[in-house]
Design a protein around this nucleic acid. Sequence first.
DNA 1: TGAATAGTTGAGCAAGTGTTCATATATTAG
DNA 2: CTAATATATGAACACTTGCTCAACTATTCA
Lengths: 96, 96
Amino acid sequence: MKLTELKAIQLAELFSALSDASRVRIIALLLEGEMGVGSLAEKLNMTESAVSHQLRGLRQMHLVRARKIGRRVFYSLDDDHVARLFSLGLDHIQHG
Amino acid sequence: MKLTELKAIQLAELFSALSDASRVRIIALLLEGEMGVGSLAEKLNMTESAVSHQLRGLRQMHLVRARKIGRRVFYSLDDDHVARLFSLGLDHIQHG
DNA sequence: TGAATAGTTGAGCAAGTGTTCATATATTAG
DNA sequence: CTAATATATGAACACTTGCTCAACTATTCA
């Protein structure tokens, strides 16, 4: 494996985006479909501010995308890599 | 996706293990085969101490395993999940 | 228009992380 | 035995991160 320093940094940033339990739980909820910030906050028992801060990071890493309708913003997973990373990660921690 | 808080934490810990460029580069080198701490340090241009500290975390997450021969310790990837997470991550950052 | 609602943003701070440096352990050589 | 080699470890410190709180924007409702 030959890996440029740039790609090492980008890979680390990608995994960083999934390296927090709150963000993991956000992803898990979005696996079921799109959801607004308030609903996420309620289900996660977090403030909307905290959720919004986390969504910002996920957006910047292109893991989620936002769709604005009126004053609501619905978030959903950006592409299927996210779900696959998620399920591969689950495999790893479940097995042994 | 129903996800217990425990599993969310464990997933986050797994991705945390890959959330640093030094560790990503260690993994990339180990994809080619096992390697000692000194060789890793040389190729990564890091001190042996820093590499050893990082390897400890990777060991604890079961991403690498150690094989001791004399006073040398050879590290290798623990299972294939690591390589798959790595290549899936590369897909994500490369595509767009 | 003004009040309420949904979400975003920046500052501030406590907690966590990665490195360096010094020291410690384990193994081998002489 | 002592000295050298390979790695591990703990403390310290700078840097980063995720939260709260307050203020802000944008939109809808009355």
